[in-house]
Amino acid sequence: MNSALRFAILLAALVFTWLAWSGLFKPLLLGLGVVAVSLTLWLSARMGLLRREVFALDLTPRMFGFWAGLLVDIVKSNFVVARIILSPSLPISPCMIRLQPPLPGQVGRATLANCITLTPSTVTVDAHRGVFLVHCLTRESARETLDSDIGERLHRALGDR
């Protein structure tokens, strides 16, 4: 995907968002929309969001598969944490683990860190220099996070980004 195509996709997404949210087609609002879309495109290009490694809108079927798997993980660990909170003895065994993510790129690491945080019972508290410091609610969740193949799945979905 070349850079002109990435620009066109972002432009289409922004125009659609503006029209869907305002729902009005008066000249003033359309003019404001043109200004807002141009400003956003310029800022995105200036921030480097249109570079191949960073651009997030080229969705592949594999990425959707990864999100679906993540959703299953989130639902499962939601039930685990809810049971822990509701049990009278509060059976937690908090611990910190150090995790070396199997991802070469910055985008992949950032995504993985956020996915780990999004799953209840694990929170990434530090991701400096590609080593994650993950706080886990129980020893079991720590063990599961260390054994999990979510990093490899993300690597397959994202490539070397």
């Binding site: 989130i74 639902v75 939601n78 909170i85 908090p94 799953t119 019972s121 929170v123």
Partner: peptide
């Protein structure tokens, strides 16, 4: 929950499911 980091797990429960 007893401390800040464990409370964050509870908070993420309300934010996700």
């Amino acid at each position: 929950m007893p401390d800040l980091y464990t409370r964050m797990h509870a908070s993420s429960l309300t934010d996700t499911l």
